[in-house]
Simulated scan of single mutants.
Amino acid sequence: MSFDVQKIRRESMRWHLLNALDKARPLGALDTLLLDVMRALYPDTTPQELHVQLDYLQERKLVEITKRPDGHWHAKLDRLGIDIVEYTIDCQAGIARPEKYWN
C-alpha cells in the first residue's frame, strides 16, 4: 500500500481552508491570514501553493476570490462552500472532508 503524500496534503489543505474561511464569515480573509493558518499545519506552505488551492476552490464554486491591486487575495465562502462545511450537501472528491460521525 502506498500513500500519495502530495495528494493527501492538497486535499487536506483545501478542507482546512474551507474551515478557516467558515470561521472568518461573513467577512472572509486575506491570503496573509490564510497563509499563517496553513503554516501552522504545514510549515513549508508557500504563497503560491496557497493560491493554487484557493484557485481550485474557486473553480469548484466554493469560494469567491477578489485579487487586489497589491497582489493579495481576499477569499470568502460561497453558498456551496458553506454547505460543504456545514455537511448539508455531499462533498465530491478533491477535498479531504472527514466523514460525519454525529447526528
Rank of each mutant, 00 (worst) to 15 (best):
D90P: 14
L57R: 00
R97L: 01
V5S: 13
Y42M: 12
D31H: 09
D31Y: 07
E11M: 00
Q6K: 10
W102A: 04
H51D: 10
C91A: 11
T46I: 09
V37F: 04
I82D: 00
G71R: 09
L33T: 12
S2K: 11
H74S: 14
Q48L: 13
T88L: 03
R97G: 00
K76S: 13
H16R: 14
Q53T: 00
D90I: 09
Q6C: 09
W15S: 01
R79M: 11
A75R: 04
L50H: 05
A93H: 10
K76E: 09
T32H: 04
D44H: 12
A40S: 15
K7M: 11
K61D: 15
D36W: 14
L50I: 09
Y101C: 11
R97N: 01
L21R: 02
A24W: 00
E99G: 05
F3P: 00
T32V: 15
L50M: 05
I65S: 05
Q6L: 14
K100W: 03
M13R: 08
T66N: 14
G94R: 02
A96E: 06
T45L: 10
E59C: 09
D44C: 04
L35I: 11
A24H: 01
L34F: 05
W15D: 03
L18M: 04
D36E: 15
M1R: 01
Q92H: 07
R10T: 13
E64T: 11
G71W: 07
L80E: 13
L17P: 01
L27F: 15
P69M: 13
I65R: 02
P47G: 07
A93Q: 12
L62Y: 07
N103Q: 05
G94C: 04
Y56D: 06
Y87H: 14
V37R: 04
E99V: 07
N19S: 03
H72V: 13
M38A: 15
E11L: 03
H74D: 09
L41V: 07
D55L: 08
T66M: 13
F3K: 06
Q48H: 13
Q48Y: 13
L27G: 15
H16A: 10
L30I: 08
Y87N: 12
Y101G: 13
L80P: 02
L17H: 01
L34E: 02
L35P: 08
A93S: 15
D22G: 10
T32K: 12
D70H: 08
W73M: 03
A75D: 04
L30C: 10
I8K: 01
P98E: 02
A29N: 05
G81Q: 03
H74G: 06
R60F: 09
T88D: 08
K7Q: 14
I65C: 10
I65M: 07
G28D: 01
N103E: 12
H16Y: 15
T46D: 06
L27W: 11
H16C: 08
R79K: 14
Y101F: 12
Y101S: 14
V37P: 00
T88P: 05
